[in-house]
Write a protein that binds this DNA or RNA. Structure first.
Lengths: 155, 155
DNA sequence: TCGATATCGTTATGATCATAACAATATCGG
DNA sequence: CCGATATTGTTATGATCATAACGATATCGA
């Protein structure tokens, strides 16, 4: 096995000597999300579902039919993005769409029977997966993390 | 102004009645990262740089020349992804590449003079930006968050 | 009522992101 | 030395992701 290339670094620049990328929250958040997402895909990937797709289905399961735009806001996706996700889920008959009778601008999205059945199958798996992601933390640390992340996300 | 469409939800499903998407870390992490990333783009977007691009430049600044593959691991990007980022930075003359003399597989990436100058200009901005993202938290909460995120990212 | 304004969904563009398959190079074990 | 194995970088595919511009519809205010 060739050694991993940890070759000695070239001369390190020291103009801003106390700066470290690891100290930037954004970088840590990105890595933590990668881990969580990877855990999820490892478990539900066999269903050919991504994390955003699962979130979309789960939200519809919680709330029932929603306009495409509101659905997007509830899963933190821009209009252009939620559109694509809905199209893929629709192609697989997991969701169905219809026009809102009173507001012609709206497209209402809802789970199909197959979608409901799938979500109910996936929820326990997702809960397991969350447990896996949180495994390195104790119970009180988990509560704390939720509290802190919640504040960050709100702004 | 038309009202925001918070139209009453259709009948809520209750088979897994205690499940909430908000309780899933992955979802919270994604939203928190979106916030952090958005804060960064708001400040450095005028330089036409994304968060991953900035991370790449910052890592090269810290460590000096690195192979493309190692650089990717140090910024948490897959080989296929770091390749594209490097290509864009190279096109803008912020990094330069050369073949490693002893290991012909490796492409060494390093900052150009322009790249160094840009990073040194951006670092203070990024530090400010991190402060903005962390604004909702007190000092001890921030330390705690770093600790917890670090453990999650490690696994 | 009617024009100004806001929202919804679409389109287009460009940047991540992960995965799998592949050729070239390097290293290891016998 | 040399075949098995590992690593590096590339290519291809498909799914996010954010942004800006746009037409259609809805609402507000004068």
């Amino acid at each position: 096995m060739p050694r991993t290339s940890t070759k000695a670094a070239a001369p390190v620049r020291r103009v801003a000597s106390d700066y470290r990328l690891e100290d930037q929250v954004g970088f840590l958040l990105r890595k933590a999300y990668q881990r969580a997402s990877s855990n999820l895909v490892d478990r539900i990937g066999s269903y050919d579902l991504t994390a955003p797709q699962y979130a979309t289905l789960a939200r519809l399961y919680e709330r029932g039919a929603l306009s495409q735009n509101l659905l997007g806001r509830l899963v933190a996706m821009e209009p252009a993005n939620i559109r694509d996700v809905v199209l893929r889920l629709k192609k697989r008959r997991l969701v169905a769409t219809r026009r809102d009778a009173t507001d012609k601008r709206l497209i209402l999205i809802d789970l199909t029977a197959a979608g409901v059945a799938l979500v109910e199958q996936l929820i326990p798996i997702e809960i397991e997966c969350t447990a896996t992601t949180l495994a390195p933390l104790k119970a009180d640390q988990r509560r704390l993390l939720y509290e802190l992340l919640g504040r960050l996300a709100e702004g």
